[in-house]
């Protein structure tokens, strides 16, 4: 069984994080986007009608909370879509591919490097939201928000899973796209299924029950893990270097490429 080298994965993570920190556009977009997503839920809760009953408020606050779930989905898509296509465009991918690093290690390193700031920023925004509610919202509204314990817990638990989904879709697009611009545009499609789920919850087509949340979480985890493996397989050195699919090597007993 193939053994991945954690040192090489850490090296990819460290390099990616250094590179991101020095790209002002990335830093700004990663900071601004979540803050914009924070505005809508805060405004919604702060302008809520005084006459609403406790049960109405309980229903009313769920949607802004679900809205926050879009942050970890939307934030990493562009970055993930850039990460391989960008390296190819800058000419840094080929030297990387000439090293002993395995494709699985590259994909894992790049995914982790995007996951860390995404989840950190998403949790920061969730924290800011809850702090704003606790400090500035009317007492009944704040009470209604904090009564949504399972939803809040789901918010924190689903953030990495949703980010994982967006990252693997972005990486898949990045591995196959010929241009960064196209990759980034396609990368934004990763958020569509999650927007759909949030929409169905908002329209009460799906009810945010514990069972639904558990099923969604387990399903998402399985999909993320499977998708990551698929993306690693898509990471074909020959295709990335020449733009054509790897040939089968006639001399070997089993058909395979020099992909690792």
């Amino acid at each position: 069984m193939m053994r991945l080298d954690s040192g090489r994965i850490r090296a990819v993570v460290r390099k990616e994080m250094r590179d991101y920190r020095r790209r002002r556009a990335i830093v700004v977009s990663m900071l601004v986007l979540p803050l914009l997503f924070l505005v809508e839920p805060v405004v919604t809760l702060f302008v809520s009608l005084k006459s609403q009953s406790a049960s109405h408020l309980d229903q009313f606050v769920v949607l802004p909370l679900l809205y926050l779930l879009l942050i970890p989905v939307i934030m990493p898509g562009t970055l993930a879509a850039y990460t391989v296509a960008g390296e190819r465009e800058q000419g840094t991918l080929e030297p990387l591919l000439t090293t002993p690093v395995r494709r699985q290690e590259i994909i894992a390193g790049k995914a982790v490097a995007i996951m860390i700031p995404t989840v950190a920023l998403a949790y920061t925004v969730f924290g800011l939201f809850l702090a704003a509610v606790a400090l500035f919202a009317r007492a009944p509204v704040a009470a209604a928000v904090f009564r949504q314990g399972p939803t809040l817990l789901a918010l924190f638990l689903f953030a990495p899973l949703l980010a994982g989904w967006a990252i693997v879709v972005g990486l898949a697009v990045s591995v196959r796209a010929n241009e960064v611009r196209v990759a980034q545009q396609l990368g934004t499609l990763a958020s569509l299924p999650i927007v759909g789920v949030v929409g169905l919850l908002a329209l009460n087509v799906i009810h945010p029950t514990f069972t639904a949340a558990a099923l969604f979480g387990v399903g998402l985890l399985a999909i993320d893990a499977r998708a990551l493996r698929i993306v690693a397989r898509m990471f074909d050195r020959e295709r990335l270097v020449t733009g054509t699919k790897a040939a089968r090597y006639r001399l070997t007993a089993r058909a395979a490429t020099l992909g690792d």
Binding site: K15, R18, D19, R22, R23, Q90, G91, T92, L93, E94, P95, L96, T98, T99, P100
Partner: peptide, 17 residues
């Protein structure tokens, strides 16, 4: 790849590092 080293035509450095 562990035993060899390749320098492609363009050195392909990370310019922000």
């Amino acid at each position: 790849r562990q035993r060899i080293a390749i320098m492609p035509e363009a050195p392909g450095l990370y310019l922000r590092l």
